[in-house]
Nucleic acid binder design. Structure first.
Lengths: 132, 132
DNA sequence: TCTAAGTCTAGTAGTTTGCTAGGTTTTAAT
DNA sequence: ATTAAAACCTAGCAAACTACTAGACTTAGA
């Protein structure tokens, strides 16, 4: 139940980009400096966010990253889900086949409820909400 | 953002005990058999739950575990918190000193909100709710 | 062509996870 | 007093994960 550094940094990058959404693309170097993080490591942090289509990338000279959509159209669920490769707390809540006891398992209901609470919160909030 | 096996098993043990709360103490062996889990591993799963005062332990012959309080008086937060050694998603939400940027950090608000959503859910539900 | 950007891959020390295993202590029953 | 069944304690371990660093490669504007 811990949030990884990768996800935390990913959120900071997204928030940083959200605050500059109008200004076109931003090189990672600038973000790294502002956030006090290693640029090299941020490259890896950013990769899954770009792969998930949350960022538009401009390569080459004067390149950088920009949010692929307006901050109001990117939810926290989008960001966390991309960084953590899904929001699932465990395999058995989504994948019925993961456990033969799944259908009668009372603890599955517990985790399912927790999962819903988490998903609800993350889907309600957008980057725009958090920047403001 | 994954729930560890230890915590999942711990919840199953607690639920198993909640269903038998009236019947006095239950040896781990029985729980392990019913749940299809290794008794030896469950010993380690149960240790932090007992240490947190959620279980009363009877040692020696015919010993075993029983919930220390009625199922209605044990929340899911009690169980998860004992198993995971706290509910915190990260150090910086609780410990201000963990990061010098803490006071001005917008992503801290995000994680704080998520933390609240999780705590709320876990504190509202009791073992009795889940057994029923 | 130079240079500043992103991309891809590999390595790595340290930690965590999910166990297994063995021995010790406690206590009721015999 | 002995036995047996239970909890308790500690150690070990392979595999995975984490949080990085490093270097070589590609892209594209000035």
């Amino acid at each position: 139940m811990k949030i990884s550094t990768k996800t935390r940094y990913g959120m900071r990058v997204m928030l940083d980009l959200a605050a500059r959404y109008e200004e076109g693309c931003t090189p990672l170097k600038d973000i790294a400096e502002r956030q006090g993080l290693s640029k090299k490591y941020l490259e890896q942090v950013v990769a899954p966010l770009a792969a998930a289509g949350l960022l538009t990338v401009t390569r080459g000279y004067a390149g950088g990253y920009q949010l692929a959509r307006a901050p109001r159209d990117i939810t926290l669920a989008d960001v966390v889900s991309a960084s953590e490769d899904g929001l699932e707390l465990m395999t058995c809540t989504s994948d019925l086949l993961a456990c033969e006891r799944a259908d009668s398992c009372p603890s599955r209901r517990i985790w399912g409820g927790l999962q819903d609470a988490i998903n609800d919160y993350l889907q309600r909030q957008t980057l725009a909400d958090m920047v403001a």
